[in-house]
């Protein structure tokens, strides 16, 4: 049996009156590229913050790589935070050096190669970059690591089409070369639905569907259509 890379049992997290995760039950198999899909506010980011130990659930049990999340488990997790930025005074090279210093499994050589492929000028200051260029650097910080799990929270949001394509292309290359497990959350699956071989649909803090993407397609059609149907309410609001 393939061990699960992520397991959630009855996980609840509240913010005041608002429930971000509602008795979430989830098991994500290892070695897959899993899409965590759902509209904004469905609990994707809270789930990822729980997996990286930044947020502790009010109730329930979370396991990542077979352990309770904390700073130690982050040694084996490459994490792209949601809506993250980078330090404006750093140059691209300093950002990569930051990764080299603090992120276990980081390969500077690989990072420089990725920067070259994604057309990043290493001497450029982050403060002078477009959002898309900045996003590419942050993605490199995750993809240049040899770790068990890569967690990318909304890597395609708020960036230009060119950067989006560069990011999708480098993700495909990354998938081809690595055996790592990858979780990618997104609320916009256009152009990327072919990447996911396992799919989790979140709605109001619960997993309303999870399984092989191909099974989902065979049963319901394209992820995009399923997405539209499942979240019809949010769409009409």
């Amino acid at each position: 049996m393939i061990p699960n890379i992520v397991e959630c049992h009855q996980v609840t997290k509240r913010y005041g009156q608002k429930i971000a995760l509602d008795r979430l039950e989830l098991a994500i198999p290892a070695g897959r590229i899993t899409g965590i899909l759902g509209p904004n506010g469905c609990g994707k980011s809270t789930l990822f913050r729980t997996l990286t130990g930044m947020v502790r659930p009010d109730e329930g049990r979370v396991e990542v790589l077979g352990k309770t999340p904390g700073w130690r488990t982050n040694q084996s997790i490459a994490y792209l935070p949601d809506r993250a930025r980078w330090y404006p005074n750093h140059t691209a090279r300093q950002a990569l050096e930051w990764g080299n210093s603090f992120l276990p499994g980081f390969s500077m050589e690989r990072a420089i190669q990725l920067a070259d492929e994604m057309e990043i000028d290493l001497d450029m200051r982050v403060g002078g970059m477009s959002k898309g260029q900045e996003a590419r650097i942050m993605l490199i910080l995750c993809l240049a690591r040899d770790v068990d799990l890569v967690v990318l929270d909304e890597p395609f949001t708020g960036i230009d089409v060119m950067s989006r394509e560069a990011i999708v292309a480098s993700l495909i290359d990354f998938l081809e070369e690595s055996e790592q497990s990858i979780l990618i959350s997104t609320h916009d699956i256009q152009e990327v639905e072919g990447l996911f071989d396992y799919t989790v649909m979140l709605k109001e803090g619960r997993a309303i569907w999870s399984g092989n993407s191909e099974d989902l397609r065979a049963e319901y059609g394209s992820l995009r259509n399923v997405f539209r149907k499942l979240y019809a309410k949010e769409w009409n609001d």
Partner: peptide, 14 residues
């Protein structure tokens, strides 16, 4: 495999 996956934008494992 890489070329095809890139062009079709699908998972290389597939």
């Amino acid at each position: 495999v890489r070329e095809l996956a890139q062009e079709l934008r699908i998972n290389p494992n597939t």
